[in-house]
Simulated scan of single mutants.
Amino acid sequence: MASCSLNPDTQGPGEKYIQGEWQQDSVPAQKRLVTYSLYNLRFSCDSFFMKISTVSKVNYGADTCMNSGHWNEYIRGTYSQKLDTLHLKGEFCNADGSYKDEKGCFRYGDYEEYFKVKQKTDSLIQFASTSNVIPINVHLIKRTSCVPKPL
Rank of each mutant, 00 (worst) to 15 (best):
N132K: 06
G14S: 11
T64H: 01
I141A: 10
E21V: 08
S26I: 07
F127C: 15
L33S: 10
V55F: 15
Q23R: 14
K149G: 01
H87I: 15
C93F: 07
V147D: 11
Q30H: 09
S129C: 12
N132M: 03
V58H: 15
P148R: 11
Q24I: 06
D63C: 03
D122S: 07
Y60A: 14
I141N: 04
F115G: 04
S3G: 07
C65W: 03
E73W: 07
N59R: 08
H70L: 13
T130A: 08
A2W: 02
I136V: 09
E21Q: 12
Q30D: 13
L151M: 05
M1C: 03
G12R: 04
T85I: 11
I75P: 04
F92D: 14
L6C: 09
E15P: 03
G77I: 01
V133S: 13
D25E: 03
I18R: 03
N67I: 08
Y60R: 07
H87V: 11
K118D: 01
M66H: 15
G12T: 07
K120R: 06
Y108N: 12
D96Q: 05
V58A: 11
D96P: 02
N132S: 15
D46Y: 02
T144Q: 13
T35R: 11
Y39F: 10
E113Q: 06
V138Q: 01
R107S: 15
L38H: 14
L33P: 00
T35H: 06
Q119H: 11
N40W: 08
W22H: 02
T144L: 04
E21L: 15
A62E: 14
C4V: 00
Y114L: 12
V117L: 12
Y60N: 03
S56N: 07
Q30G: 00
T10N: 10
Y60C: 01
M1F: 07
S131D: 10
C4A: 04
V147C: 03
